[in-house]
Design a binder for these strands. Structure first.
Lengths: 242, 242
DNA sequence: CTAACATTTTTCCAACTGGTCAAAATTCCG
DNA sequence: CGGAATTTTGACCAGTTGGAAAAATGTTAG
């Protein structure tokens, strides 16, 4: 599983509070947003990075602005200069996350063959669990709370995407290229297993122990999942494959 | 999947703060714990139930005593009469939870045949996801935070149990009754998929939509998982099984 | 260099947090 | 019933929380 390049969690700009710039020169019909400065871009990134760290561990309510500010290496009021409220930070994080999160599924291609496609989808998701565990936990935290801040995106964007890919899977089944099962639960199972290695990482490492819980665990997981999805657990005596 | 009976989350007693009973009659070498009264048992149950609700949604730090007290229908000081601190409530919840959580795996029997055993393990876990989603989320929340309060139980009790069951699986593989794969990741995959239906329930329901997201979703999941674990996704033209 | 703007710090606040305490209300039991 | 023990309440507290205001300091284009 070679290194992959996925942009870290970072979304569209949101200029810092325009101070009391609205009081003076009210002549302008719209306050011109005035492109972000270098410092703004940098600091916002630092803050989002710190917020990812904290939110992903403690959830929205369990995270405090002070803590995020400390991790970001700045004072709380300074942080609040860039993001006027806690919710705003979280929103930015979630918006960027969702894009990143859906990308692997989008890549699943109807013109390809099911097994290579599913195999590489699993690989990509597993790489994300390995390389972006905090993003994974941020997502999981939001889900555990009932997804209050992203429910409509789940119900619309995600649902549409899954519906579309479920049709692709059904198409493959009709062509006899894939066992006939529930395409939705098929997708869920891939999500579940790959998320697991990020979200329950402590447990995975503790159970595997120091010997097998090292970096190799993702390779082992990938191999296991491939064989599970390919043949299940039924023993095959004629083991002649590569 | 018929209804199952698993005791709700409730652990060993922990007598309420003995007031300032220690000041008077210091003659006694050990203060006799004095069995719990009816009210104590009842109220503690009510509190634990409320705490389960709140902790499972917001995690330890995100939950507040006031909120738990409100859900439990009592005042905060009254709640604190039964559990002197927040951590105590959480501990009780976790202790009871772990027992309940490990039970299904313990039941997996080396003398049985692998497929019926694995099949019913999956069923039991899925039933727990359906019937005790809050317990599942409580567990997930603790994991997401790095399991600070139960790490040693994970590293000892859980690890031992899994090591033992991994040997059972390996035994089956040696007998040619089960495909040769990684037994640890096999167990992880069952955990992952079944937890998913409790922890990511919002997502599952939203994606399945009102039509298929109803009660039947657990039956569908059970059927899908059975066929996945049995044969994987490879199409079988000679569909002659029952 | 300097005015205009961007950034940072200091100070402050009201609401909320986990938790205490004594007094009042209730329950229990002989 | 009556007294002892248990349970509940209301007032309170120190520390934390999200956030506001304004003053102080940097930065940069003209």
């Amino acid at each position: 599983m070679p290194p992959i390049k996925v942009k870290s969690v970072q979304g569209a700009p949101a200029a810092p509070r325009q101070h009391k710039a609205d009081a003076k020169a009210a002549a302008q019909p719209q306050a011109k947003p005035r492109a972000l400065t270098r410092i703004q871009r940098e600091k916002q990134d630092v803050i989002l990075e710190a917020a990812l760290e904290v939110f992903s561990m403690h959830g929205f309510r369990g995270a405090t602005i002070d803590q995020i500010a400390e991790v970001a290496g700045m004072s709380k009021p300074n942080l609040l200069y860039y993001f006027p409220r806690k919710e705003e930070i979280h929103r930015r994080l979630m918006a960027a996350l969702l894009e990143t999160w859906l990308a692997p599924l989008q890549e699943m291609n109807a013109d390809g063959d099911p097994f290579p496609e599913i195999r590489s989808y699993i690989r990509r998701k597993l790489e994300m669990a390995r390389d972006f565990p905090r993003e994974s936990r941020l997502f999981a935290n939001e889900m555990l709370q009932g997804a209050p801040r992203i429910i409509e995106m789940i119900e619309v964007d995600l649902k549409n995407l899954v519906d579309e890919k479920a049709k692709v899977l059904l198409g493959w089944m009709d062509q006899g290229k894939l066992a006939r099962t529930d395409p939705y639960h098929l997708i869920f199972s891939i999500w579940a297993m790959t998320q697991h290695y990020a979200d329950f990482d402590v447990q995975v490492r503790a159970v595997l122990g120091p010997g097998r819980g090292g970096e190799g665990r993702f390779e082992d997981a990938a191999r296991y999942l491939e064989s599970l999805f390919l043949h299940g657990l039924t023993p095959r005596t004629n083991t002649k494959g590569s």
